[in-house]
């Protein structure tokens, strides 16, 4: 009995298990029998050449690919031990637990405050009187509070690119997710803004399971604890980041991280 409780507590921390997962758009097979487990409260980096399916994989975890017609999948992904692809799953509940940050910052054309408050308001997660505190907490967590606290009611589109991306992180955190998916969050940012977002990722992993897709090998090496290397829809290698970058066991992995292809 106690063991089961302990077990279930451990399972609500946001670990992600991928079991024989395949995915295709129409006739195009994007992912092929991918299986691995991502640890909770750690950063998992997904690296690989363009078109290897890493973004598709990320968007399979919160089922955002559902928006695209004519997709097929096989196998399963489990978040906290619960299948993401079960028939009749509550997609809203899934996405509340699995937040996402996109490649290009995509704030709504609303005020900074409204952007962060969007999720909690829509899903009635916090009482209206607690909303300002939630917004403040999330902006602080995203290391943006000091820069915007005096202009919360100004349009979010007036922020710089790096600030917009941190605002999008704050917006995702406002739903209090267990998992944070990041799809090349720094690819449109300058080096200084990139550094700030990377520092933020390292801070956030204490509380969240983070999966980051990145093209930038140094970034993967800097921020992640474990790394998965994808190529042509297959998971070639998965292991501790240090090992992947210093002593990869597969030849393709080594070729990719040393820059011989991709």
């Amino acid at each position: 009995m106690t063991e089961r409780i302990a077990n279930s507590e451990q399972r609500t921390t946001g670990a992600i298990d991928v079991a024989d997962f395949s995915f295709s758009y129409g006739p195009r097979q994007i992912l092929n029998n991918v299986s691995f487990s991502m640890p909770s409260k750690a950063v998992t980096a997904i690296i690989g050449p363009s078109g290897c399916g890493k973004s598709t994989f990320l968007r399979s975890i919160n089922r955002l690919n559902d928006l695209i017609p004519e997709t097929k999948h096989a196998g399963d992904i489990l978040v906290d031990g619960r299948s993401v692809y079960t028939r009749g799953i509550d997609l809203v509940a899934l996405r509340l637990g699995v937040g996402m940050v996109f490649q290009r910052a995509n704030p709504f054309p609303k005020t900074i405050y409204e952007n962060v408050a969007y999720g909690p308001t829509l899903n009635r997660l916090v009482a209206p009187r607690d909303l300002p505190a939630t917004v403040e907490r999330c902006l602080k967590q995203a290391a943006l509070w000091d820069e915007v606290k005096d202009r919360l009611d100004t349009p979010a589109t007036g922020l710089s690119g790096g600030q917009q991306q941190r605002l999008c992180i704050a917006r995702a955190l406002a739903n209090d997710p267990k998992v944070l998916l990041m799809d090349e969050p720094c690819s449109a940012l300058d080096p200084i803004a990139t550094q700030r977002v990377e520092e933020l990722i390292v801070q956030l992993k204490a509380s969240y399971t983070i999966v980051i897709v990145t093209h930038n090998m140094q970034q993967a090496a800097r921020v992640s604890d474990v790394t998965g290397f994808f190529d042509r829809g297959e998971l070639i290698e998965f292991g501790p980041t240090e090992q992947i970058f210093t002593a990869p066991s597969k030849e393709r992995t080594e070729a990719y991280i040393t820059g011989r292809f991709g």
Partner: peptide, 24 residues
């Protein structure tokens, strides 16, 4: 990306249309 942002934040398709796409 606006629609996706809303849906990734737990909006249903209708909510995404009404709170993100239409205001945009």
């Amino acid at each position: 990306s606006q629609r996706e942002a809303a849906m990734a934040l737990g909006a249903t398709r209708w909510e995404a249309a009404w709170t993100a796409v239409v205001p945009y």
